[in-house]
Structures are given as C-alpha cells and as structure tokens.
C-alpha cells in the first residue's frame, strides 16, 4: 500500500524541529523512517505532517562522556553494532543493534527513532533498559532526560512528548560490569519473540553481584525490566545457584504477552526463562571490566 498524503518539513536544527512539531497539529518527527514508514504503508498510522530530522547536524555520533556513552539519536543500528566504544562499554547494546532486522534495516534505522517509536517488538529497548540508559529529549520547554524505565508505555506509545525530539541516548558506564543481549527470533516477523538484556556489576573480586538489571522485549505488550530476577541477583554470589534462583523468577503475567499465531504466552514465558539463563550465563562468565 501507499503511505497517506502528508506535509513534509525538513528541519535543520533541533529548535526548528520542535517549532515545526508545535506549529503543526499531529506532526510526527521522522528519523530513519523504518519504524513509522511501514506503519504508514500498512495503514496503521497516518500522520498529517512529518518533520524530517535527518538533516540536523550533530545527532549522529558515539562519544565517551564523563558518565558513559552518549549516542546521537540519528546513529544507525549498523554504526552502533560496529562501534568499538559500544562493544567495549555497552556490549548489550552492540549485540542488540546487530540483532535488529537485517543489514538493510540496520543501515536505515536509527537508535533515537527506534526508541521513540515505542514498538514493543524492538530489540534495542531491552538492551537500553538493562544498561540503565536514558534518552535526552528537547521540547518547547527545553531539554530533559527520560530514564529508560519510564520510556516505554507499550503499543507504540512512549514518554517522549508529542512536541519533543529525542536527541541522544545516554548509557552509563561503570567498572566491574558485564552485559549482553540474547534474542530468540520470531520467524514470522524477524523481531524477537523473546529478547533478554542483562547487565550485572560485581565487586572487585568478581564474587558478588552488587547490581543487576534484566529486561525483556519481544512478544510483550511493552519492553520491561524484570525486577524479581534482578532482586534474586543483587547481593548474591556469582555462581550457578544464583542464576538458577534468578531464572526461577523470570516470568511475567501471561496477560502481558501479545497474541502470536505460533507462540502462546506460556511458551513465551518458558522462552523468557531459557533466554534469561543464557544471558546470565554469559554475563557472569565474562570477565568483568
């Protein structure tokens, strides 16, 4: 199908983009367009105005900051996946970015758009949630930060306001941490049926888990943290029994799963446990940095 008719504006600065969003009823920002455009072509969305932010300078970079990594909103999945900085400091994100779609989609889609789009099937949210990331947004009232835990409302809705632009994704970096992302691909869509992002921080000796974040995405109504799993990890020894205890908590209410033609909620929960175990096996075996 064809996309609906719309007004098109190309913004050259964040301020201009915000101004265009404010002054045009129903306007949507568009970055890589790989989230919005297919939904326009299937008739699921029909924005009357699109504000193209691709022409804004300075939003396509990966930089080390005092707090960690700052990734410009227009940075593509491919660029993130091959970034040595991301691979070193936020491996879960590099793995998740490499797991997105296929080569062409990784070349076309960008991180800011991906997160702001709020597709519950997406890979990146689980990694960003696990890494404790946040997005920087700019709106008519200035700039602010939205923690990933606040970001995803499900069903293509996010905390990003109608008149706000995601400008960057901030990933904190700390010592003695490890992270990864494990995907079980839904053969129908290529999106994860279940994707699990994990991040752990141990003591200097690598014997005790001091902090942990585990997040799931895929066939869920929204990407989410698995706090029971995290609680089972935090303060526990780095050993097999800790993983077993944590994995035992890796389940969500079955109502939190969407319908899939080939996978029931019970099976998704089973996969969630299996993938959580795999992810934890990986991060707790990795020599922390």
């Amino acid at each position: 199908m064809y996309a609906n008719d719309f007004e098109y504006y190309r913004a050259t600065s964040v301020a201009e983009a915000v101004e265009l969003l404010v002054s045009n009823e129903g306007a949507e920002p568009m970055a890589g367009s790989h989230g919005l455009l297919p939904r326009m072509r299937t008739g699921e969305e029909a924005p009357p105005v699109l504000v193209d932010i691709n022409g804004i300078d300075g939003l396509r970079s990966i930089e080390e900051t005092e707090a960690g990594l700052s990734i410009g909103a227009l940075t593509t999945h491919a660029e993130i996946a091959r970034s040595e900085l991301v691979q070193t400091h936020a491996p879960a994100l590099a793995v998740a970015a490499q797991a997105v779609g296929d080569i062409q989609v990784r070349n076309g889609g960008s991180i800011g758009g991906n997160l702001a789009h709020g597709d519950p099937r997406a890979d990146l949210p689980a990694a960003v949630l696990a890494l404790g990331g946040s997005v920087s947004v700019t709106g008519p009232d200035g700039s602010s930060s939205i923690d990933a835990t606040e970001l995803f409302h499900g069903d293509f809705k996010t905390e990003v306001g109608d008149h706000e632009i995601v400008t960057a994704v901030e990933i904190p970096v700390a010592a003695n941490t490890a992270s990864t992302y494990v995907k079980y691909r839904n053969p129908l869509s290529g999106y994860p049926l279940i994707g699990v992002g994990t991040w752990v921080q141990t003591d200097d000796g690598g014997e005790t888990i001091e902090a942990a974040r585990v997040a799931a995405t895929g066939n869920l109504v929204r990407s989410m943290r698995l706090e029971e799993v995290e609680n089972a990890l935090i303060g526990s020894a780095v050993d097999k029994s800790t993983i077993d205890a944590a994995v035992a908590e890796a389940a969500v209410d079955e109502e939190l799963y969407r319908q899939d033609p080939q996978a029931s909620a019970a099976y998704c929960n089973h996969l969630l446990a299996v993938r959580t175990a795999e992810a934890l096996d990986t991060v707790l075996a990795i020599e922390t940095n």
């Binding site: 299937t42 053969p187 129908l188 869509s189 290529g190 999106y191 319908q259 033609p261 080939q262």
Partner: peptide, 24 residues
C-alpha cells in the same frame, strides 16, 4: 514455518510479510 491462521472474527492474522514466515 508457514500456515495461515484465521482468528475468531474470521480475519486472517497472518496477512503481512511480517506475520507469515516465508523462509529467509
């Protein structure tokens, strides 16, 4: 992988290329 599925309302739920698994 394949197989069409109709829901209780008689709608085809495998009606897009991201809902029906042509093998990659």
């Amino acid at each position: 992988y394949e197989g069409a599925v109709y829901d209780d309302d008689g709608h085809l739920t495998t009606r897009r290329m991201d809902e029906y698994a042509v093998p990659h």
